[in-house]
């Protein structure tokens, strides 16, 4: 059974069609990358999978369970985690708390009114592990707003990882990162446990081809091509859209 299944998804804002008959499937542990020009509807698709936006038509299934009409929190409880293209964090809270809440959401009990939140070893350990994976240990006590943009991007990923999701959606995790930070992010993504399925939106072709098991190309809301990297890179229509710009070279 697929980890994620998107069936005939459609979404329009007025006359602007952002998702057009999209079908997508991710097997357990698969690393799937979505590419496409700006405004192609990549973020809109992630919002629909995450539950931030309701599709007009179509179905979304996680592990065979339909979630099309479920609130984002229910999907997260079902094992889905995501990051946002535009940092969506707790600016006034510490880095630790930003990540800790991600762990608490899945492994804590939010309606416990008496146990101090900071005194839960299993939550603290998961938080620490996520911070370590992203190389953020030294910044744990810092207020998030004091971090550089790049470091905040890492916190986005750490907070998502703290919940140990089955399916992780990353919306342009390397946008705004320096070349060194980008390389570090690639290593982190490649080092994620294989039990975790990944759906990543990415522009940087080097990143795309170093992590993707499969690639889907979105163009004006519709799937232009989908398949293994070499196949997609060789696709004539894809090459047309990208004007052959380095896509084929990057595949090798």
């Amino acid at each position: 059974m697929s980890l994620l299944r998107v069936e005939n998804l459609n979404k329009a804002y007025g006359s602007l069609v952002v998702t057009k008959d999209v079908n997508l499937e991710i097997a357990p542990g698969e690393r799937h990358v979505i590419i496409g020009p700006n405004g192609a509807g990549k973020t809109s698709l992630i919002h629909q999978i995450g539950g931030q936006t309701r599709p007009d038509a179509g179905r979304i299934l996680i592990d065979g369970v339909e979630v099309t009409r479920l609130d984002p929190e229910r999907r997260a409880q079902a094992g889905l985690a995501r990051t946002f293209q535009k940092n969506t964090l707790f600016q006034r809270l510490s880095v630790f708390e930003n990540v800790r809440l991600g762990a608490q959401a899945r492994f804590g009990s939010t309606f416990n009114l008496t146990t101090p939140a900071r005194a839960l070893p299993h939550i603290n350990e998961r938080t620490q592990a996520a911070l370590t994976r992203m190389g953020l240990e030294k910044l744990a006590a810092e207020t998030l707003a004091n971090l550089s943009y790049g470091d905040q991007r890492q916190v986005e990923v750490a907070a998502a990882l703290a919940g140990d999701p089955k399916l992780l959606l990353l919306d342009e995790p390397t946008s705004g990162l320096s070349p060194a930070e980008t390389r570090a992010m690639i290593e982190v993504i490649k080092g994620l446990p294989r039990r975790m399925g990944l759906l990543v939106i990415e522009h940087d072709m080097e990143v795309v081809f170093s992590i993707a098991d499969r690639i889907t190309v979105l163009y004006y809301g519709a799937v232009l091509a989908s398949g293994p990297p070499a196949e997609v890179a060789a696709n004539a229509r894809v090459r047309e859209v990208y004007l052959g710009a380095g896509l084929a070279d990057a595949a090798h």
């Binding site: 931030q52 609130d71 929190e73 985690a81 809440l101 959401a105 939140a117």
Partner: peptide
């Protein structure tokens, strides 16, 4: 803590579950 998180950013809180 969840209450404070909600005050700071509800979209994120819901996305986390």
């Amino acid at each position: 803590h969840a209450l404070v998180g909600m005050r700071e950013n509800e979209t994120r809180m819901r996305a986390m579950g």
